[in-house]
């Protein structure tokens, strides 16, 4: 099983990135998820290993983010890590805007969007991974897409102060 998990590491890493606001968070999430998966090997009932790991990571992410949100005075200081500069083909500003847009999604809507779009799961598979009805997959996907589109188009910019 360990070897199989190692084979899936690139996929798991990608999913952890897609759920996290920045790279250090993604690395932490990946580690937590691997530790959780290995600690609960006994509960893996021969189900599709990849889907099982995706479920674990989704749950770990929800728990982690809940903890972080509940921690008083939490300030995310490493946000600048999401500005990727290694790859000259993509516009770093565009990429940064997209990252900022998905960071605004709720955890639930975000995992559905990433499982469908980035990981390429079918809607039925996503329903299975997240243990939610198909209709809920659809409504979360729809909300996620619209929110990202609105953010990128600047529709949901909220003025913090009223103009004088």
């Amino acid at each position: 099983m360990e070897a199989k998990i190692l084979d899936l590491l690139p996929l798991l890493r990608r999913y952890s990135r897609s759920l996290s606001d920045n790279t250090p968070d993604a690395e932490d999430l990946l580690q937590d998820s691997l530790a959780a998966a290995l600690a609960s090997q006994g509960s893996w009932r021969g189900r599709n290993l990849k889907s099982w790991l995706m479920t674990i990571m989704t749950n770990q992410n929800r728990n982690r983010r809940r903890r972080v949100r509940n921690a008083p005075g939490f300030t995310n200081m490493e946000y600048a890590d999401t500005i990727a500069t290694e790859n000259p083909q993509s516009d770093p500003l565009e990429r940064d805007r997209l990252q900022a847009a998905i960071n605004l999604l709720s955890d639930e809507n975000r995992s559905v969007l990433m499982l469908v779009v980035v990981e390429g799961y079918s809607y039925a598979e996503v329903a299975d991974i997240l243990s939610i009805p198909l209709g809920t997959v659809m409504s979360r996907l729809s909300r996620a897409r619209k929110k990202v589109a609105d953010t990128l188009e600047g529709k949901n910019i909220v003025a913090l102060r009223k103009p004088i």
Binding site: P10, R13, R14, R17, S18, A84, E86, N87, S90, E94, R95, L98, Q99, I102, L113, M114, V117, V118, R145, V148, A149, L152
Partner: peptide, 15 residues
């Protein structure tokens, strides 16, 4: 949007 997301995380995977 799909393409942008796929590209973004494909790139991070390659990095």
């Amino acid at each position: 949007q799909n393409e942008a997301l796929q590209k973004m995380f494909q790139e991070t995977a390659e990095d």
